[in-house]
């Protein structure tokens, strides 16, 4: 029987890798390594990474609410210093199982038969999972970067559905879940560069307590005001929380890093 052995949240801020202001960042890059060690020690065989497209993969002619790639993977296609566009170990059978379970459960997810992922998936896949390909990845793209946005409750429920899918797998697998996203950040707006630590702490407090209610009760307008358009990515955290209900968390690192534009939070969520 398959089980979820852990959940994580982590950022994918490109500026952390470009580092245009040449700021100290080793401790933040090190947080990815810390998570990679935890994933290795967990015995994980599969990873599901929830992320958003940044208007890089999906254009105005087709904007999926949920999309699961079911073929080979590589990325990030938007190469970053230290994070090249490399193959990502995939598992088409597992991906297709998740798609099938989603469709049976009321989530009509889209699929991509072949996909180069962007940094939302590529950064955690390349930096937080073992480099030997022993952990096979299935990405889940959610509409968190381009409107119409997935509803917060729907993101949480999607995570619950994923948890159910894993529990019903007839084979022994150990799965880790990753919610990829910055906390507060404004992308392409006049506020860009602002980081709202208060909002970030509120989000992290929910992850630590295992209580998603305060996040689910927020409106999109509140998130936009307090966390920016980039803050909409908390949907990915909610998906992990939905799959690990009442799972309490621990913050591994947090910083309103002045080398970038994003509240950078790294946390672990343990199954209840």
């Amino acid at each position: 029987m398959a089980e979820i052995v852990g959940g994580f949240i982590m950022p994918h801020d490109p500026l952390l890798f470009v580092n245009p202001k040449k700021k100290e960042r080793d401790h933040l890059i090190g947080a990815y390594s810390e998570i990679r060690d935890k994933v290795s020690k967990s015995g994980a065989t599969k990873a599901i990474i929830f992320g958003a497209d940044h208007y890089i993969l999906f254009g105005p002619r087709c904007l999926p609410q949920f999309l699961i790639p079911t073929g080979e993977l590589h990325g990030p296609i938007d190469r970053l210093p230290g994070v090249g566009d490399s193959p990502i170990a995939s598992d088409p059978g597992f991906a297709e199982y998740l798609v099938g379970h989603a469709h049976q459960s009321g989530f009509d997810v889209s699929v991509a038969r072949d996909l180069g992922v962007d940094h939302a998936i590529g950064v955690p896949a390349q930096l937080a999972l073992p480099a030997d390909g022993s952990v096979k990845t299935v990405p889940v793209y959610m509409a968190s970067g381009v409107a119409p946005y997935v509803r917060l409750q729907r993101a949480y429920d999607f995570g619950r559905m994923i948890g159910d899918a894993i529990a019903k797998m007839p084979v022994d697998e150990s799965v880790v879940l990753i919610g990829s996203g910055g906390i507060s950040h404004w992308v392409g707006t006049g506020e860009m560069g602002r980081i709202n630590s208060e909002f970030d702490r509120k989000v992290l407090d929910c992850i630590v307590s295992g209580d998603a209610t305060p996040l689910l009760s927020m409106t999109d307008e509140e998130i936009m005001r307090e966390g920016g358009n980039g803050g909409m990515e908390i949907r990915h955290f909610l998906a992990v929380m939905g799959a690990l209900p009442a799972g309490r968390g621990e913050v591994l690192a947090y910083e309103a890093w002045d080398g970038g534009v994003t509240g950078l939070g790294f946390a672990e969520i343990l199954p209840a």
Binding site: Y55, G145, V146, V187, G188, T189, G190, M192, G193, N229
Partner: peptide, 25 residues
């Protein structure tokens, strides 16, 4: 979409033009 607008701007004017973009948007 501001993310797309920023991407368009920097694609045309280069990443060094970000301060100019942010002074306008």
């Amino acid at each position: 979409n501001p993310m797309l607008l920023m991407g368009f701007w920097t694609s045309v004017n280069g990443p060094q033009s970000m301060p100019d973009y942010l002074s306008r948007v």
